[in-house]
Design a protein around this nucleic acid. Structure first.
Lengths: 212, 212
DNA sequence: TAGATTGTTAATCGATTAACAATC
DNA sequence: TAGATTGTTAATCGATTAACAATC
């Protein structure tokens, strides 16, 4: 499969297709059409077809795409087939929730350990190590970790971010509601609860107004 | 301030401005320019100016916008000035993390209680009630709750969603990685960890390739 | 006054949708 | 063959960026 330049909008829709494809029970047809996928996810069928064209080659007219192949192609495209190791900084409630979430395996994400300035215990319920922040650098170097997850309070986010970059991390997933300043070769993915809440809040405001 | 029709892209950027404006220490100038804001957040200044024009009237040339007024305008626009009550379904780790996060107050969100099919305790550490799912409807009706937060495993997400709608909920914030089927007047906001991971994963793949 | 900054109007860019030809 | 479905090319739409006039 020739790898084309992919836009971010397409990229963001791929996990949705993947999740749906995986959720289909084994029994049925081994093929699925873009039309069927679109209907199931409430999207336009042309869009789905175009998106799929980016990652796989060849559905067959009248039949659709072979489900298994499609799943493999998307996973390979997204890099879910080879796992990424990550460290997590901030072993608070959110941090521990992420640490304990087994579902990330499916996305090729493996959180090796959590770090904190003041580790309450040395292991989570699930047996993942919680280490002192001072051990971060040697840990990252020896495990060749490229991804860091930030779940510390806002005020420490930037300094933790700087520290991660100093440890050789190339991609950062942050849950702290603040802008992080980083060099251009580092990717920051902001899990932005605030924007979600903004969208929800606007919808409710509109609803209230309608009722009047 | 005349309320114009606002696009989703603008809406999603507003919380970022708000967070930054609030983070500025009291001491300095009471004014801030779109240019300064843009630089601080790594954005284009024209975009910032256009976005601000949607929610407030009148910065002053050469001076900028009065910071306090700007904060108030954005908060009012987003509806953060009057709090929204919400219920949360699924008192697992993620659910409890959200339940205990005090930062939501700033977004006008107040999670009243959590519900679960099998409540381990009847209160969280923070003193918020955890109730049995059977009490959901009467609770929502009596408290006139309009927002529901879903933190249950994927396989229960749709049924929980249906239940919430049956209780009169109008907006749903879901953390379950699956598509939810809802009537058109209900808003579903999908907190999509999977898309974030896809973006991160792609970046790391590109990095690896570069190194070779 | 000069210059920084705002707000507006026009141009560009990218993404989505529509139309249609190709194919099994 | 007929019809469902794919893939492609063109048209539309919306959002971002650039250019510029207005203003303090």
């Amino acid at each position: 499969m020739e790898r084309k330049e992919i836009s971010k909008s397409v990229l963001k829709r791929l996990p949705g297709y993947l999740a749906y494809l995986k959720s289909i029970p084994e029994g049925g047809s081994p093929y699925i059409s873009a039309t069927a996928l679109a209907n199931a996810l409430g999207m336009g069928e042309v869009q789905v077809r175009k998106d799929l064209a980016m990652v796989c080659d060849g559905g067959r007219p009248k039949i659709g795409y072979p489900r298994e192949v499609l799943i493999d192609d998307i996973e390979q495209f997204l890099g879910y087939d080879n796992t990424t190791d990550a460290v997590l900084i901030g072993a608070g409630k959110l941090g521990q929730a992420l640490l304990g979430y087994v579902g990330f395996e499916a996305y090729g994400l493996n959180i090796l350990a959590a770090f904190d300035t003041d580790p309450a215990t040395d292991r989570t319920d699930d047996g993942k190590p919680i280490l002192h922040i001072d051990q971060l650098e040697s840990f990252c170097r020896s495990h060749k970790v490229l991804m860091g997850i930030i779940t510390v309070p806002v005020e420490h986010a930037q300094s933790v971010c700087d520290k991660l970059i100093g440890c050789g991390i190339k991609a950062i997933w942050t849950f702290a509601p603040t802008h992080l300043e980083v060099p251009s070769n580092i990717l920051v993915q902001h899990e932005n609860m605030a924007t979600s809440l903004a969208v929800l809040s606007m919808h409710l405001q509109a609803q209230m107004k309608e009722k009047k």
